[in-house]
């Protein structure tokens, strides 16, 4: 579970970083920035919902992943 959460965080940071790269490189002429930001927000939502659901159903202990 912990690895999975860390993987999500890695991909969230990677998509955010790519969005910044496209923001500088494409100069507003492409959709790559907004696409990467969409990926970023989708991954964050999935992670948050998974953490909430995991705790609710007792898969993750109340005081978090250690």
């Amino acid at each position: 579970m912990r690895i999975l959460a860390l993987l999500f965080i890695f991909f969230i940071l990677a998509s955010l970083g790519s969005a910044l790269y496209y923001l500088i490189k494409d100069k507003g002429q492409s959709e790559r920035t907004v696409k990467m930001l969409t990926v970023r927000v989708a991954l964050s939502l999935i992670l948050f919902i998974a953490l909430m659901a995991g705790t609710y159903f007792g898969i993750i202990p109340q005081n978090g992943l250690r």
Binding site: I9, L20, G28, T33, L37, V41, S44, L51, G64, L65
Partner: peptide
Amino acid sequence: FAFEAVSWYWHFVDVVWVLLFILVYWL
């Protein structure tokens, strides 16, 4: 550009919060 920069900044602040929520509040 102004909109795109502000939008990105907001996403950045959001990601920092997700890290804060997990590392400061949760763990």
